[in-house]
Simulated scan of single mutants.
Amino acid sequence: MNCQKLELLGGGAHGIVFLVQYYTSPTCVSVKLVVKSSKVKFSDSIWEEGQILKKFRGCPYIIQCFGDDTSVEHGNNVYNLLLEYVPGETLQRLINSRERSISESEASLYAYQLLKGIQEVHRLGFVHCDLKPNNVLLFPCKCGCGLNQLKIGDFRLSKVAGEEGHRGALLYTSPKSLFCGMHEAPKDIWAIGCMVAEMMVGESPWRFSSSCNSNDDNKLALDMAFNEPQVPTDISDCAKDFVMRCFERNPNVRWSADKLLNHPFVANNNNSLLCQTWEDRQVLNNRLFKTEEWISRFDLFSTPISSCTCGCCRRDETNEHGIV
């Protein structure tokens, strides 16, 4: 089996992301993967994300993880997490790219997929904790219809339901989790409501008043404590009702993913029939990558520095991860 890091895609506080060429065995089919890498001593966050993603193997609405690897790269002990490659962009970029808002019918399809993904997360006892458009990745539909398959990614902040943890992005955090610090399934539902509303109007339902500067998190938090998010007025009553079910202030009353999937805004044959084709494709991908097996390797990426031709693997001592 051959696996090579081709291109540096980006990075942050928790690791560096590479595009990887992967050759399956024994057929030697070439496919692309994404790998999150970090020095072993800084890799706790990436490792924990992998252990969570492992539990969602096979879900077509969650980014798939195919395994991990520990290797020596350019003098550093490096931990690598192998993830599904997404050829599209993020939901945030899609929203920003539209001159007009996303239509209700398209938003309905995306809401359906978000609920299907988060339904699996909650079924297994987890809370994503950081649902936002930047953490939702798109697979463009190959039929040319302009629609996208959505997959939820970035589980670094995910918790077992009821655990304390980081709040995630403020604009998508429910008031209860913001002020009590506990994370339960209704928090993710609130975030889905925020995203669906944003899709249909092109901006956050927390529209900033003159007294609430968008760069001031403290003022925004106070606004969230005492006010309600603004539900779009120029959408259908059905869409309004869906968003309001997500924005129930009392988390015990807020609708669950199971219940929302039966809401008329998303429960239609068009959504289920289109998504069935994507679910079938996921089954084929699972067979290709054998995702019933967790690939754990050593030295998968161990390569002498002289053999690196991609130009992205230069060692930089100023980078705490020490691998680029």
Rank of each mutant, 00 (worst) to 15 (best):
P140Q: 12
I192K: 04
S174N: 09
L150V: 10
F126C: 00
W190G: 12
D154Q: 04
I189Q: 03
K151R: 15
I152P: 03
G181H: 13
D130Y: 14
H128P: 13
H183E: 02
L124S: 10
H128F: 10
P140Y: 12
P175I: 07
L138G: 10
N135R: 02
L124F: 13
K176G: 00
S174Y: 08
R167N: 08
K176P: 00
L131D: 01
G146S: 09
C145Q: 01
L124W: 08
A169P: 05
L137S: 06
H128I: 09
P140E: 11
N135K: 01
S158N: 10
R167I: 12
E184W: 13
K116H: 04
C145G: 01
F126E: 00
A191H: 06
S158T: 13
G125A: 02
L138H: 07
Q149M: 04
G162K: 08
G162E: 05
P175C: 13
F139T: 09
T173S: 14
K187C: 10
K159I: 08
T173C: 15
K116I: 00
E164Y: 14
A169S: 15
L131E: 02
L178H: 07
L147R: 15
G165I: 07
I118E: 02
V127Y: 01
K159N: 11
N148I: 03
A185H: 11
L137Q: 12
G125N: 03
V160I: 11
L171T: 11
G146I: 04
D154A: 04
E163H: 09
E184A: 00
Q119G: 01
K159Q: 11
V121W: 07
A191I: 02
L137V: 11
H128Y: 13
E184C: 03
H122Q: 02
C141K: 04
L170T: 02
E163G: 00
A191D: 06
C180P: 00
L170R: 10
V121P: 12
S158Y: 04
S174Q: 03
S158H: 04
V136W: 03
I152Y: 05
E120V: 13
G146A: 05
G153I: 06
G146K: 07
H166E: 15
N135Q: 02
L137A: 08
K151L: 10
C145W: 03
G144F: 09
G181L: 15
N134H: 14
L157V: 00
V127S: 05
T173E: 07
S174H: 07
P186S: 11
G165Q: 11
F155A: 05
L178P: 08
Q119A: 05
L138I: 08
D188I: 04
T173V: 13
R156N: 15
L170Y: 01
D154R: 01
G165L: 07
F155Y: 04
C143V: 09
R123D: 09
Q119V: 00
